[in-house]
Nucleic acid binder design. Structure first.
Lengths: 236, 236
DNA sequence: TAAGGTATACTAGTATGGCAGTTTCGTGCT
DNA sequence: AGCACGAAACTGCCATACTAGTATACCTTA
């Protein structure tokens, strides 16, 4: 059921439907990095990955390049490729831009969504409630992003969402990191409902306010995170 | 003297200083596509490119991948790779996001720039006046971007600028296209001066207003462009 | 024992060849 | 003349071999 997140992330790889070895490896590694299965700072050898996926080094190499462009790995020629560390400055930058763009886009969307769009959002909300009850946090995270992505797409801003997401990789990883701890997803679901209602009623003020609140809530205690996982972060 | 633009564009390819064959080809092709030397819709064969740059097909392949991620080419497996057409929707989307982000960032920057930053901006302005007098339009374009990039970088938002630029490739190509026609760069330089003054005085209102005006001015007559270069654009 | 230099085992970068699709164009048949 | 078929010439995809640069462990030497 990871497809919710993945379909958003990859999408633009192959104009046709077919999936190359490259796409497979790219999806897998990207997923593993974003979900901290591959921990920041880990060394990734082309050889090792090519053996794990049973492909040659060529597609792996290309995947590494893409991941570097995404800012997810760093390649040091003749030395090695490493999962990039989480950069708190990048994190804040991503969050800031997202707040900026999303409040604007969502105000624009208020009252303009089609019945179809609203249905999609409501369905996602239902899924969120279930996942929340089951304490399936990773799926919650995916659905959270899916909710926001749907709104962007509904206003014809799919590319904007992708660009903003691109900038928010460290934000995402930090959110995953925080999952191991507490955190009340109830609040998030409630906020989503508030956004949904605001969108339906067309209340620009409300949706902008809630979204801002929603994203600011995600400003977690960074120092604590850094204390707890010191070698996951770049030192300032 | 293209370095002004290029250094901004590439930057993050190689953590070290050295440049691989891949980087060279990437830079060159990217430049050629953005400046319409390679026209939208052109077929690009791996073979042809590898011969032109006297490298093997492997780095060329990798460059094609990167360009696809940038949205500058489209790869159809077993058929060919083509320079992507300009999409007016993407163009407007890029312009919209840029307006949104840049007005916010620049208001934030007002009154907070260091002497060093202001000096850099003023130097760029001087260069612009010269290029304007010489009617060196391509350099004007590069300097225009450089001016804005400098502001972003000065507020520690370099990555934001890159992400926004990424989204603005079609916007950029359209600007290049328009260069062949009229257009009063004087106005642009004057606006830049106004921005500069506003930044120095710390007048948030002024800079935001001018930037918005500045970017809206770039809303060119799209229909005319499409009429004139019909096969450069995707049909809606 | 400690320091320095060298050999070796890595790394990523590049070149090349073979494969499997797709397109194109020429040939032969109707 | 027009249409269908097939061969050939592309395309990108992947595997493999080789090059060159880097880190490290070990051995030599002072």
């Amino acid at each position: 059921m990871e497809e919710v997140a993945i379909s958003v992330l990859v999408s633009s790889l192959n104009p046709q439907g077919r999936e190359s070895a490259r796409d497979t490896v790219y999806r897998a590694l990207r997923h593993d990095i974003l979900h901290l299965i591959l921990k920041p700072g880990t060394k990734m050898s082309e050889q090792e990955v090519s053996e794990r996926f049973e492909v040659s080094r060529t597609p792996v190499r290309e995947v590494f390049m893409c991941l570097m462009q995404d800012g997810l790995v760093e390649i040091y020629p003749q030395r090695g490729t490493y999962v990039s560390l989480i950069n708190l400055e990048y994190l804040e930058e991503g969050r800031y831009v997202r707040e900026l763009v999303e409040t604007a886009v969502i105000s624009e969307a208020a009252g303009r969504l089609s019945e179809d769009d609203l249905f999609r959002l409501e369905t996602t909300l239902a899924a969120q409630e279930i996942s929340c009850r089951n304490k399936d946090y990773l799926r919650m995270l995916a659905l959270d992003d899916h909710f926001h992505a749907t709104i962007f797409r509904a206003c014809g801003r799919a590319r904007t969402w992708e660009a903003v997401s691109q900038l928010s990789h460290d934000f995402y990883r930090a959110r995953v990191l925080r999952l191991s701890h507490d955190f009340n997803w109830d609040t998030i679901v409630r906020q989503h409902y508030a956004i949904f209602e605001g969108l339906r009623k067309g209340d620009k003020e409300q949706v902008a306010r809630v979204v801002r609140e929603h994203l600011r809530m995600a400003i977690m205690d960074r120092e604590r995170l850094r204390k707890e996982f010191p070698d996951y972060f770049v030192q300032p």
